[in-house]
Computed example of a mutant assay.
Amino acid sequence: MSLPSKATTSLLRHAGRQQLPALRSSAALVQKRNRADSPFDASTSHAEFTSPFHRGTRNEQDTTVIPNWGKYRSSSSETGNKLFQYFMVGSFGGLTALGAKNTVQDFLVNMSASADVLAQAKVEVDLSQIPEGKNVIIKWRGKPVFVRHRTADEIKEAEDEDWKKLRDPQPDEDRVKKPEWLVMLGVCTHLGCVPIGEAGDYGGWFCPCHGSHYDISGRVRKGPAPLNLEIPEYDFPEDGLMVIG
């Protein structure tokens, strides 16, 4: 190496040694300034930094923090709030029950019988128009009803019969409210035919369709009919008047 190059190298080294302390002090000032501006210091991070997701100290983290809903709480008392809730529930329950009742009532009214049907539910019969020993046929609820004004001999015949031996055992007094008036549905108990009055082998009613015979009390005596003629509901509200139904 020549003399000039050695001199140049020595000068550069000397200049570098003189500038190194200044660079170090500048770096230290910059680092100190950055630490002052930043809230986080690595040397004191564990002591000064607190996580926003935890409460308490580092070793005592509260994991069951309950939010404070105080500002949303009602200003009224707990009893007052309960009374209001009960009142609202009861009111809506009452309105619901009333609506259900009206709905069911309207449905039942629509399903009930009309006025003309109700008019036929009961039939009044003027007994003074039926002579002794005669039959009349009354239409009631779409069915024929036999009304017989029996004579004394017919009453005696019906009462003297040994009813215990009959197919459908029934005494005459259980089939009439007044001995002289016999009221029956005019429908054969076999297949629903209409028997003929004052006919048959027993002086009562005869069904020509299948040959069933009934006596003067309407009890089956012969033929395929299994039961006596049915007795409808009827009453005598006053003398000379009968109401069927």
Rank of each mutant, 00 (worst) to 15 (best):
H213I: 06
D201A: 13
A152R: 09
R219G: 01
A121D: 12
R221T: 04
Y234H: 10
V194T: 15
R150A: 07
V30S: 11
F84R: 15
N81I: 11
T64I: 02
S43H: 11
I216W: 02
S128E: 09
S77Y: 07
P52S: 03
N110R: 14
L166Q: 07
F84I: 12
S10Y: 05
G56A: 05
A97F: 12
T8Q: 11
Q31F: 02
P21C: 11
S114V: 03
E78K: 12
G223T: 07
F107V: 11
R150I: 04
R17F: 08
Y86S: 10
I130N: 00
F84C: 08
Q85T: 13
A28Y: 10
R55T: 10
G240Q: 04
T63R: 15
H210V: 01
Q31K: 08
L98D: 03
R73Y: 05
A7W: 03
G240Y: 01
E154R: 14
G16F: 15
F107Y: 15
S128H: 02
E230S: 14
K178W: 04
P39E: 07
T151C: 01
Y202N: 11
I244Y: 09
S5M: 07
T50F: 04
I231M: 14
N59D: 13
D168I: 03
Q120D: 14
V117P: 02
A28V: 14
E238A: 14
I155A: 10
D235N: 12
A22I: 13
C209S: 11
F40V: 15
E78H: 15
T79A: 12
I137L: 00
Y214S: 05
D168K: 02
K122R: 13
D201W: 04
Y214M: 02
Y86A: 12
F49C: 04
P169E: 02
Y202K: 13
A119Q: 08
S77A: 14
E173I: 06
I155W: 10
S45P: 00
P226D: 11
G16P: 00
A100N: 04
E198R: 15
